[in-house]
Design a protein around this nucleic acid. Structure first.
Length: 284
DNA sequence: CACCATGTTCCTTG
DNA sequence: CCAAGGAACATGGT
């Protein structure tokens, strides 16, 4: 489920539920997801710790903890990979098949589940990866963005997935932002005009903000297996309105009419990933 | 069976 | 050294 908006919505959902809660029993059921920590060290560090806050950096979740015993601070860093989920369940509920880590919180468990096992939950202090600016903060300034794009021959769609350029845009919102900006996905980054870069920057921000707003407004079902999960990955709460149909303009809509000009949306492959675009609204 | 999937890292090639 | 492309990771849905 993970691009910046989904992670942000999840962070907002989890923060009030976790704040102040104390971790009891720690179960690492899939050692791989806590690497490079060992399951033992991971469990030992977390037992007795208390959640203070939850935040986000790019697609990473940051759990700020106060460890058991004497002072200090501890950060638990999570990444959902492709299929990771995090949620609370009553402690008496049987664990889901793909529960990778379970943190006991008294009458509830905090579950990190990940069927495809690309996700991580580690003590390693924050991503040691080079992350670009947060797209929704002032750090995402026009000049450096222009300068960075000017240096790359990569197709702009592919470049947008580079987390050192910008943190948090993934395959879905890269297509969405380019559609909104009216820019052809195959255009080499350095070939964008100054005004195109300006439009793209605004489009990225608008698309991400809208997705966060949508996800924060609609009651979501964070735990369900939901047949209609679609792209919010959690599914909506029973009875909640189905707004997912309208949420994405081009992603996964090959053959459907462009919402702006009715030309059929196309799918093409770039860097081994699907890109969706309108050949008319996004001419090279 | 074939193909596709929201992500990141590592290896190879140029 | 860098940029770019592809495979690998592992599992499930259609």
């Amino acid at each position: 489920m993970p691009e910046l908006p989904e992670v942000e919505v999840l962070v907002r959902h989890l923060a009030p539920l976790l704040k102040g809660r104390r971790i009891g029993v720690v179960q690492v059921r899939l050692a791989k997801v806590v690497r490079p920590d060992s399951p033992r060290r991971f469990a030992q560090a977390l037992r007795g710790a208390r959640f203070r806050a939850v935040s986000r950096r790019g697609k990473y979740l940051l759990f700020h903890l106060r460890p058991a015993g004497q002072g200090g601070a501890l950060t638990l860093t999570g990444h959902l990979g492709m299929t990771g989920r995090m949620y609370l369940l009553p402690a008496k509920t049987p664990l889901p098949r793909h529960a990778a880590v379970v943190l006991g919180l008294g009458r509830q468990n905090f579950i990190f589940e990940d069927s495809r096992r690309f996700g991580r939950l580690t003590l390693a202090a924050a991503p040691r990866r080079n992350l670009g600016p947060e797209p929704l903060e002032s750090a995402f300034a026009l000049r450096p963005f222009v300068a960075a794009l000017r240096q790359s021959r990569q197709a702009i769609k592919v470049k947008l997935l580079d987390q050192s350029l910008l943190a948090g845009v993934g395959n879905i919102y890269a297509s969405e932002a380019l559609f909104r900006a009216g820019i052809a996905p195959a255009l080499p980054a350095r070939r964008l005009s100054e005004s195109q870069v300006r439009r793209l920057r605004l489009a990225i921000r608008a698309v991400l903000r809208q997705a966060i707003a949508g996800g924060s407004t609609v009651p979501l079902n964070y735990t369900g297996q939901g047949a209609s999960d679609r792209l919010f990955y959690f599914g909506r709460a029973p009875g909640a309105p189905d707004y997912y149909e309208e949420r994405l303009q081009v992603y996964d809509r090959a053959g459907q009419p462009c919402p702006r000009c009715k030309t059929p949306i196309r799918r093409r492959v770039q860097a081994a990933r699907s890109t969706y675009y309108c050949p008319r609204c996004q001419r090279a």
